[in-house]
Simulated assay, not measured.
Amino acid sequence: MELIVYLAGQIHDDWRKTLKDKASEKKLPITFVGPMENHDRSDNIGEEILGQQPNTILKDEAASKMNNLRTRVLMEKSDIVIALFGEKYKQWNSAADAASAVALNKPLILVRPAELHHPLKELSEKAQVTVETIDQALHTLAYIFDND
């Protein structure tokens, strides 16, 4: 059995690479997918496909439509969604992706520091599992394959 795991959440560090590398070290049969990690490409994809837009609002809307399509297709194909909320940045995309996972009835692993317990309490109640670190999320994934 192989799982497809959508990695939603903050984009300002390399948590996805860290998680992928650790999963590979454990030889877990997982394919990871997620949002476009090239921030400039994500911001400009609407104009890349549709051509120059007349103002920044329409540029953002065009990019959002392309990014939302990508997210929906990959999330619908995923078996599990991991949404990471960090301490440093406001994470509207993380919240939207986690809400999408819930709406699509996808199992959700929510990763958030203890300091964010209160603002994320409702979302945490909708997740199947809430953890504080990516290592805990990885161990949760590994447990799915544990036959002992």
Rank of each mutant, 00 (worst) to 15 (best):
M1S: 10
E2R: 14
L3N: 00
I4Q: 10
V5R: 05
G9I: 00
Q10I: 13
D13E: 08
K17I: 08
K17P: 00
T18E: 11
L19I: 08
K22Y: 04
A23P: 01
S24L: 11
L28Q: 08
T31S: 12
F32V: 02
M36S: 02
E37Q: 11
I45K: 00
I49W: 08
L50Y: 12
P54D: 12
N55K: 00
N55Q: 05
T56C: 06
I57C: 07
L58Q: 13
A62L: 03
A63S: 15
S64A: 15
K65L: 13
K65C: 05
K65S: 03
M66I: 10
M66D: 02
M66N: 00
N67F: 03
N68A: 15
L69N: 07
R70L: 10
V73D: 10
L74Y: 08
M75G: 00
E76P: 01
E76M: 11
S78Y: 02
I82M: 09
L84F: 02
L84I: 02
F85I: 10
E87C: 01
K90G: 06
W92A: 04
N93L: 03
S94D: 02
A95Q: 13
D97W: 03
A99C: 07
S100M: 01
L104I: 01
N105M: 12
N105C: 11
N105F: 14
N105I: 06
P107V: 03
H118I: 13
P119A: 05
L120T: 06
S124L: 06
S124N: 09
S124Q: 07
Q128P: 01
V129T: 07
V131M: 11
I134L: 08
I134W: 04
Q136W: 05
L138N: 02
L138S: 01
A142S: 14
F145E: 02
